[in-house]
Amino acid sequence: MSDKGAHKADLLTEDLKHRNEIRHAPRTPRDAASLLLIDRSQSTPRVLVGKRGKKHAFMPDLYVFPGGRRDPGDNRTPFAWPLHEEVEGKLMERTNSRFRPTAARGLAVAAAREMLEEAHLSLTPAEYAGLLRPDVSKFRFLARAITPPGMPRRYDTRFFACFTDETSADLSALSDSDELHDLSWVAIDHHEEYPLPRITKVILTDLCQAMKEDPSLPFGRAVSFYYFRNGRFVRELI
C-alpha cells in the first residue's frame, strides 16, 4: 500500500474508533452503487452531493453522493448504451461465484436510477422518454468500499463517476427529493464546510488524485477497494 493509501486507511480506522453508534450483530453487506456526477465546466471540477435527513438510519444529516442499494429489478433493466467493457471487467473482479455479469450491470442501473430518484436527473436519452433506459457508457468505476462490521446498515458500494457534459441529463431539472435535500455542487478539493462521511472524503481524495493523473479519467484505471480487516480499514487496488 502507498503512503497516501495507508494514510487514508488510518483516517478511516480512526473515524471508526470514535463513532458512538450502538454496535450491531454482524450483517452481510448489500450491493449498492453511488454516482459522482462531475461538472468540469469551471477551472476546479465540482461534484453533486445532497444532505440525508435526520431520520435516516444510515449516515443521517450528512452530505453524500446520490446512490443506494441495488434492487432486484435493476439487473433486468436494459441500457440505452452499455458499460464500457473495461468497467464491466473491473466490476467482476474480487467477487464471488454468485456475482454474475447481470449484477455488475445492475449496479450501474442502480446508480442511474438513484440519481433520478434522489436528484431528478435522468440519464436516459430522449428517445426513451418515460422509461428507465440509462446510458451508462461513460461511467467510470472509481472506487469500492464495504461498510465495517457493527454498523446498523452495511453496504458493498461501487462508486461510479461520470462527467455532466457526457450525459443527456438536463441539469435544470435538478431538485431536492425525500431522500436528499440541499443538493449542492461542491469543489472536489474544497468541501470543508460540508459535513461529509469519512468515506466520502476519501473517495473525493481519490477523485482529485485521479484527475491530476489524467483529467479524462480513463476507463481502465486502477480502482481503490476499501474494506475492514482485523480492526483496520485497508486499501487495495483492483
Rank of each mutant, 00 (worst) to 15 (best):
T157E: 07
L107P: 08
R133Q: 10
A57T: 15
D15N: 06
V49A: 05
V47Y: 07
A57I: 15
A222Y: 05
T28V: 15
L16C: 06
I238N: 00
K4L: 02
A145P: 01
H181I: 15
E85L: 14
A110Q: 05
S43W: 09
P215A: 11
L107K: 15
G130M: 14
P82K: 06
G73E: 14
S184K: 09
C162L: 07
E93F: 07
F233V: 10
D176S: 13
A173Q: 14
L107Y: 07
N96K: 10
T13N: 08
G5Y: 12
R113I: 02
L171D: 00
F58M: 06
T147W: 00
A119N: 09
L16T: 12
A108M: 00
E213T: 05
A33L: 00
S2M: 11
P60E: 09
G231W: 09
A9L: 07
E166W: 09
A33H: 13
N96P: 08
L36H: 06
E236G: 02
R23F: 02
L12M: 13
V64W: 12
M151S: 11
T157W: 11
E14R: 13
D214Y: 04
P195S: 06
H181D: 09
G106A: 06
P101G: 02
H18Y: 13
G50W: 12
E118G: 10
N230R: 07
A161C: 06
D214I: 15
A173T: 12
V47P: 12
A173W: 09
L83T: 03
G53Y: 12
A32G: 05
R30D: 07
Q209P: 05
P197M: 06
L48R: 08
D182L: 15
K201N: 04
T44D: 01
R46M: 13
E192F: 13
F99T: 00
T124K: 05
D165K: 04
W185V: 06
S2R: 03
F225G: 00
S97W: 07
D189N: 11
L142R: 03
V202W: 03
E236M: 07
E117L: 15
L180D: 03
N75A: 11
R98N: 05
P60W: 05
D182R: 14
H190F: 07
R140M: 01
L121R: 10
S97G: 05
S34N: 08
M151K: 10
E88F: 00
D165E: 08
I203P: 00
I188G: 00
H120R: 14
H56G: 01
